[in-house]
């Protein structure tokens, strides 16, 4: 099936088996291996990318269903210089093995967007009040990204710092 994917600002024309997931299209077909496969079933978040402006699990999505969509992967977040969020992850040691890290970072980006749109979360006191990037809010909203090395303290510190800086 012919599929056009616009990834990190570049258009790619692919002819894919309908079964190819967005994740495998990125990793195997476009060689964008920054996006990781941790579980392939939407249970770990390592494959998180931004599609159409929203963070999603690219493993649970068929490439063919993203025909024409704008996709941002970790490779699209920086050129020579790291983005503020990426730098904060390094500074706060928000990683150990690094395998979940690209997913954490893409998820954090998407999450910060959701916060700025005023979306409440499970831990928000009220549904109508303003939401702020507190530690508790970040922890809840980032709970779809598992980290077995357990760098949550560093991850949260990096995100908090970035949220406060912007």
């Amino acid at each position: 099936m012919k599929v056009t994917l616009n990834v990190n600002g570049a258009s790619h024309w692919l002819d894919l088996d309908t079964r190819v997931t967005l994740l495998d299209a990125l990793r195997d077909h476009l060689k964008l291996t920054g996006t990781k496969k941790g579980c392939d079933h939407g249970q770990c978040g390592a494959c998180t990318v931004i599609a159409g402006g929203r963070r999603i699990n690219s493993c649970l999505s068929l490439a063919a269903l993203h025909d024409g969509d704008e996709i941002t992967t970790v490779e699209g977040l920086s050129d020579d210089e790291l983005s503020d969020l990426q730098s904060a992850f390094v500074a706060h040691d928000g990683m150990q093995c690094g395998y979940c890290t690209p997913g954490q970072i893409c998820s954090a980006l998407g999450m910060l967007g959701e916060l700025s749109e005023g979306w409440p979360s499970h831990v928000s006191e009220t549904l109508d009040g303003p939401v702020r990037p507190t530690r508790e809010e970040i922890a809840e909203r980032m709970s779809g990204n598992l980290c077995r090395c357990s760098c949550y303290p560093g991850i949260n510190a990096a995100i908090l710092e970035t949220a406060e800086g912007s």
Partner: peptide
């Protein structure tokens, strides 16, 4: 929904993850 049917918002927010809810 948040105003008139808040139980629905709360139930949705208690489910899955941010990424899954987006899809």
């Amino acid at each position: 929904v948040r105003e008139g049917w808040p139980v629905l918002s709360r139930a949705l927010l208690a489910g899955a993850s941010g990424q899954l809810r987006n899809k």
